[in-house]
Amino acid sequence: MRLTREQVVTGGLDLLDEAGLDKLTMRRLAAALGVQNGATYWHFSSKQALLEAMADRMLEGVTAGLAPDLPWEARVAETAQRLRRALLARRDGARLFAGVFFPLPNALSYGETMAATLRDAGLPLRDAVWAVDALTYFVVGHAAEEQLAAALPDGGRSAVARLVSALDSQRHPALHAAAGDVAAPHPQEHFRFGLELLLTGIRARLDGPVH
């Protein structure tokens, strides 16, 4: 039976979970799929094209079933939370997402949903799409930090200890006093805090011009 495009994408995501982004190669994928090296190129002309399709697959369902009558803040927050969960569901998911440009169906659906929600809330369209960028950068960056911390030896405890020991009470009084809140991995409430800061900024835009 001929290998399908969907099978290649699924195999790529399975290999991503198994080996990580740095070790994902077309040759290794072909071996995992049990096909000759080069067979995957029938569907994807390059590894980059495959990574784009994999990133788009990760976004499946991110915008599905959103209640149309939700207030804009709740709709944006829920979509951002869904994006975060989608990235965290795959090993190196945030790095994969950040490393590709993919104007593909699920990515475009995500962007359209977020931009239309903010436009309908009253933002000028340029502000709406730029706000989507800011929200997305935050989600991806936060997810990348979470995945990086989770991949560290001993759960990141030694890295946290290094950071805390580097904070000097005289040179870094604020950071030293807040050492317990500086080190990653941060809890879910840390993500919600940052998201709410961004939503607060958007509300300020809606309430009047920002100079």
Rank of each mutant, 00 (worst) to 15 (best):
S169H: 13
L104V: 01
L88V: 02
G61K: 06
A166K: 11
T79K: 01
F97S: 03
A64W: 00
L96D: 07
M114G: 01
L51F: 01
Q81E: 15
W72K: 03
Q188F: 09
G155C: 08
V210F: 05
E73L: 07
E78G: 08
R5T: 08
E145L: 12
R90T: 05
E112Y: 09
G11N: 08
A184H: 02
M54P: 00
H43C: 00
D168G: 07
A31L: 14
A159E: 10
L33Q: 06
L118I: 05
T4W: 00
Q147L: 06
G141D: 13
A128M: 04
Q188L: 14
L125S: 12
D181T: 13
L88Q: 02
A144S: 10
I202V: 12
L118Q: 02
A39V: 01
S109A: 15
D22P: 03
G93W: 04
T25A: 07
H142P: 03
A55F: 00
A89F: 06
H172R: 05
S165I: 07
P187D: 15
F191E: 08
L13T: 03
F102P: 04
V76R: 03
T40Y: 02
S46Y: 02
V62A: 01
H43G: 00
A32K: 03
G208Y: 13
V8T: 05
S45G: 08
A143D: 02
L13P: 00
I202P: 02
L50A: 06
T117L: 04
P68I: 11
D69Y: 09
Q188K: 12
S158G: 08
T63V: 13
L33R: 01
A183I: 06
A204L: 15
V140L: 05
G180A: 08
D92W: 03
G111R: 10
A177H: 12
P68C: 10
G20D: 06
G122Q: 09
G201E: 12
L16P: 00
D168Y: 03
E6P: 02
S45M: 02
D133V: 11
L199Y: 11
A74Q: 15
L59Y: 09
E60P: 00
D69F: 06
E189T: 13
Q81M: 10
A116L: 13
T136E: 06
L118R: 04
R28E: 08
L135I: 08
A159N: 07
A177E: 13
R119I: 11
P103E: 07
F97Y: 15
V76P: 02
A89M: 05
R28W: 00
N37A: 12
Q48W: 03
A134Y: 13
T113E: 14
R75C: 07
E73D: 07
A30W: 03
L198W: 12
S158L: 11
T4N: 02
T113Y: 05
